[in-house]
């Protein structure tokens, strides 16, 4: 574990350290950790997954200070571009889900985290990862925050990865595997955030007739439709949904903005729900 950490933005006494943990062995994920100086060992960690710019250090730094106030560890895994070009889709290409499971098992073994369950937040590409991971392993995720995803896996009959049906000609595709855990997934408290001004169609936003018909033309519309789809699916399963959509004021597609202007750190830690 590297201790010459980047400096967290400090507004008072030092409450935590942001440190880099190298990957251990082949395929093992490195991560950035925000370690509170006074840890609450019973508190679940917050796992924060970066977007395609891969700024895992930003995740740890910008979420770490508020997490430290409640004694919670922030784990920000790094899916580097060379080895994990499609980590957002979790199960396509190399299995990003297995890498995160292995990292969390290692961190438990090392005593860095104490619980099997964790809260999960993902930004942009990380938000894609986060919601698909939570669909596969809903028993591990106690709260989910999905921020500014470019597109989503909907709880509908579209072929995976747009929906939960198998792709044509594929026996035993991943869609039905995600569908199996849907009911438990819908019981997770979910917050979907998007910058109120994140309505531009940039190069990283997946386009095409099919996706735009299903999800809409920009991140705000897609977030809105996904939340509506989840709420409808929850009700269809007889579940009272605990799903909310939060528009982050004065924010575009920028993680730092979402934290500093939009209060994403409070939201990711569930503090906004407590009032």
């Amino acid at each position: 574990m590297r201790t010459n950490a980047i400096q967290a933005p400090m507004h008072g006494p030092v409450t935590h350290d942001v440190v880099h943990r190298p990957g251990r062995g082949r395929g093992n994920l490195p991560c950035w950790l925000a370690m509170p100086r006074e840890r609450d060992s019973a508190a679940e960690p917050l796992v924060a997954v970066h977007g395609i710019l891969r700024r895992a250090d930003d995740q740890a730094t910008l979420l770490g200070e508020r997490a430290a106030a409640s004694g919670r560890v922030v784990v920000a895994p790094l899916f580097d571009e060379r080895r994990w070009p499609r980590y957002q889709q979790v199960v396509r290409g190399k299995r990003a889900d297995l890498a995160l499971l292995a990292l969390m098992a290692d961190l438990r073994l090392a005593g860095t985290v104490a619980t099997r369950r964790f809260e999960l937040v993902g930004y942009s590409g990380g938000a894609q990862f986060a919601h698909r991971f939570a669909m596969l392993y809903p028993h591990l995720v106690s709260r989910l925050t999905v921020v500014s995803a470019g597109w989503y896996t909907f709880p509908d009959a579209a072929p995976f990865p747009y929906g939960l049906a198998p792709r044509p000609g594929r026996t035993g595709d991943w869609g039905p595997q995600l569908a199996a855990g849907l009911e438990q997934f819908l019981r997770i408290p979910i917050t979907v955030c998007v910058g109120a001004e994140d309505t531009e169609r940039d190069d990283n936003l997946r386009g095409g007739d099919a996706i735009e018909a299903q999800q809409g033309g920009n991140r705000v519309t897609r977030a809105t439709r996904w939340v509506a789809a989840l709420e409808a699916a929850a009700r269809a399963h007889g579940i009272s949904p605990s799903i909310e959509l939060v528009a982050l004021p004065d924010c575009g597609h920028d993680f730092r903005q979402c934290v500093r202007r939009g209060g994403l750190d409070r939201i990711a830690l569930g503090e906004h729900r407590a009032g």
């Binding site: 596969l136 028993h139 026996t171 035993g172 991943w174 039905p176 595997q177 855990g181």
Partner: peptide
């Protein structure tokens, strides 16, 4: 394994229902 388990739990709530639809993922 987790998906299979979830399907078995769901099927157990529906007596005599087939689990079905489970296969190897690509």
């Amino acid at each position: 394994a987790n998906a299979l388990m979830a399907r078995m739990v769901a099927a157990a709530r529906r007596p005599f229902a087939a689990v079905g639809g489970i296969g190897l993922a690509a």
